[in-house]
Design a protein around this nucleic acid. Structure first.
Lengths: 217, 217
DNA sequence: CTGCTGCTCGGGCAAATTTCCCAAGCCGAT
DNA sequence: ATCGGCTTGGGAAATTTGCCCGAGCAGCAG
């Protein structure tokens, strides 16, 4: 790798909140071996920054406005299979975790984890290992044992993404433009999600998303 | 008052959850001076039970299916101005508290309060005093100081009630029949609430209701 | 390889709902 | 007495929903 890698681990921070990025940057840099070489606040910029800086690890929040973070993962991995991506988000739904790993993520750490867990995970991921925080391991473990998975398990990745944005308050048009879909498609997903989950009302959908941790409120 | 009153305080419990009523009944009766003489699980039955048993204090959850608990309070007070009503609910929004007191309630205690707070409040209310739990006092105090009140302060009582039921997952028809309104009126309220609060989406409305404590999720 | 299945994406269309404007009764305040 | 605000609903246009459909594409079993 580059000389940067020789002297430590270079990191690309992707998160839509500047203050958050600033905070994490300080935490990571105080470690000595971690260097934040770039930041991005959306999925599109993330790949551009990745190409320019070729970081050892991408630390990415997948709940950003704009395209799905999962798509960003796939984008980066498709063009740079050696990329190491650590998902760092507040969500802890098993479906989301599984989707992230199958999209090519190397690790998954929740924002409620100790700062040290993030640092540890970054080092693990940089070594090419898989990493996840304890709570994620528990969620995954629970999920693998439960025959009757979460309601969200019935939903596809696109459906999850649309449900998240919808429950977050986005309009149909906003979701359509975020995801580059036709309004019609989003409407169809909306309907599909309702029938799959059994929600009779948009409000029930929001509550469902909230109780499943898809949305914070 | 009756001989029952002479030997203690008679209580009418109004709550839509049987288990909840059962639990409170035990708590209250273990006090020695409190006697639950009747229960009701809806607003309509509440007045009937009140007439029959003439309790010293009505302990009432105002978030029940059917007519608004506030209407039940007005009903009872209109026919029996000497009635003492203690509102006992999980909601702690200033608007709701104010609405309850102006509807004729003598006290307001949240369900998150210590059991002893309820007992104390019942005794206070029975003596003709006003009573409220500490958290309610804080909410009211905060509210009186804040020039920029909660978004809910823009809403009328009916609007609040409809918003609560809507955010709770009820369909327009269900709300209409609960409140004995035409579907059309509920739709108009729905629209009015959205414009008043600035919510562009049903999901935003639910989130608003949740952050204001109108709904638990 | 060949089907099968499931996800994604969207068209179509009738039925339902939402949006927005308006009116009337009621009640409290000025 | 009048004004404003709450409550209740009608009406009509605009949108969305509910369901049905087909196509492309990936993965997977036979």
């Amino acid at each position: 790798m580059t000389e940067v890698a020789a002297t430590g681990i270079s990191v690309l921070l992707v998160d839509d909140h500047p203050i958050v990025r600033q905070g994490y940057r300080r935490v990571l840099e105080s470690q000595g071996d971690l260097h934040v070489v770039a930041e991005a606040d959306n999925a599109a910029d993330a790949y551009g920054a990745f190409k320019v800086h070729d970081p050892d690890v991408v630390v990415m929040d997948i709940s950003m406005p704009g395209a799905s973070g999962l798509e960003a993962i796939r984008n980066i991995r498709a063009r740079s299979p050696r990329a190491r991506i650590l998902v760092f988000t507040m969500h802890n739904e098993a479906v989301l975790v599984k989707a992230a790993f199958s999209a090519g993520a190397s690790g998954f750490v929740t924002k409620s984890s100790e700062p040290s867990a993030v640092v540890t995970a970054i080092r693990s991921v940089a070594r090419g290992e898989r990493a996840m925080s304890d709570d994620i391991a528990h969620v995954l473990a629970e999920d693998s044992l439960s025959p009757t998975g979460s309601v969200l398990d019935q939903l596809g990745e696109r459906e999850i993404e649309i449900l998240r944005q919808f429950a977050g308050g986005a309009t149909t048009e906003q979701i359509a433009s975020h995801l580059n879909l036709s309004v019609k498609t989003v409407q169809n997903y909306h309907y599909l999600i309702k029938t799959k989950t059994g929600a009779r009302t948009d409000a029930q959908l929001v509550r469902l998303a909230a109780t499943c941790g898809l949305t914070k409120i």
